[in-house]
Design a protein around this nucleic acid. Structure first.
Lengths: 221, 221
DNA sequence: ATATATTTTTAGATTTGTCTAAATATTTAT
DNA sequence: ATAAATATTTAGACAAATCTAAAAATATAT
């Protein structure tokens, strides 16, 4: 596996995430995601094409090819393992891990990452509930459903949070909701689509539609 | 504290190390240390001067000023804490930690380093026996003496190894010598200046002059 | 279908860190 | 003290990654 620059890695990762939503990624979308200019994106796409990581025809959008996806999964593996480390071992708050992991993920030693993985006990999910690719790029893909769509009186566990803004994390903290929190929806109010949610061993809390749609859970007690 | 580029940090660190030996650092010496060209060094020295990190008059050599030393100690702190982490937690071999720490040291989050320090239990020395600066840049400065200069029948503890080549580390491993090894010199042979060294709870081993001069110890059992 | 708006690409400039080759300053040796 | 050797700096070029402004391609709306 070749080595890529920090900048190349950031582009690869962003394409990977964007192409989960849309089949093909546009110049503008990528520029917006990376807070850069469309012209810079075009420049980099030419480079990634000559390095055989993406499919790209001018004006046609682009997407990672098999090799590009492999590279992306390696970067995501590094990112999520560091997030787990920061949260679990260094006791960082939820909201703080991402920024630091953005830097750590570009340290390229394969041995470092594999030993870190071992040290952490081969974790399967990061603190935001996202799956961590293993050494072969494989990851568990737990069935996710938004809290808003969870049927009444069904036990579930929070496994992902879509939005990571400070405001959102503040609110979650206030409601005592985190990855791993076990809960069930007791009532749904048609007036404003708010939910009454019972968190295991706590009194019920009210969750707005907007918040519920950003919290993802998996079934099971 | 401002942020510096990876390249700037490498120059700062190299100047710090070189000026421990010589009062003032020369362009050529720094170029050799960093495997770069003298012209590149001059370019960077101009930059570090405008950033007020070094004293520098053309043709006169250079050295870090107070602020430059503070920055250098910050980088060295990061480097040595990561070395400790790699060795202690991830079980890297002695000889492998340096290269990876060279990359990790440039991740700039202060909070990361302070939390890492806490997680590691505020270690005072890295795996090579070099002191780790604390959060204020202070470090313990244990009296070091080369094993070759250690008087006969005096207890001492290995605290530093000057040379980190694979060959050297191989030899040390074979002789069962590592940082923290307690030992005393039982005899010195004038013919070849070799030493007979008794390692605590082991049979005596022979150490060549060359090896003994690269092993540093502090007094005490 | 054609004009308008949007998206994407190109052309050329900028910054950082590096280089080579040539010029200049300093040191060393006779 | 002066020539030769060495060390350092300058001048100008280059690669990577970015930018602005303008041109070209594509999409949209009447």
């Amino acid at each position: 596996m070749l080595n890529y620059s920090t900048s190349e890695e950031n582009y690869i990762k962003a394409i990977f995430h964007l192409q989960e939503a849309n089949e093909t990624v546009s110049t503008n979308a990528l520029a917006q995601e990376l807070l850069t200019r469309p012209a810079s994106v075009t420049d980099m796409m030419k480079k990634l094409k000559t390095k055989k990581l993406i499919h790209y025809q001018p004006y046609q959008g682009f997407r990672l090819n098999t090799e590009g996806k492999k590279v992306a999964l390696g970067i995501i593996r590094r990112h999520r393992l560091w997030e787990f480390f920061l949260s679990e071992k260094l006791k960082f708050e939820w909201g703080e891990v991402h920024e630091v992991a953005e830097e750590l993920e570009h340290v390229s030693s394969k041995k470092l990452i594999d030993k870190l993985d071992e040290f952490l006990g081969y974790p399967k999910f990061d603190p935001h509930g996202d799956p961590i690719p293993d050494v072969h790029g494989r990851m568990e893909d737990h069935e996710r459903i938004s809290l808003f769509d969870l049927p009444l009186n069904v036990y579930a566990e929070v496994c992902h949070v879509a939005n990571q803004s400070t405001e959102m994390l503040d609110l979650l903290k206030h409601k005592s909701i985190a990855i791993g929190t076990k809960l069930e929806v007791k009532r749904k109010f048609d007036f404003d689509n708010s939910l009454e949610v019972k968190i295991r061993q706590q009194s019920p809390v009210t969750i707005s539609e907007q918040l519920a749609k950003n919290i993802f859970v998996k079934y099971g007690s």
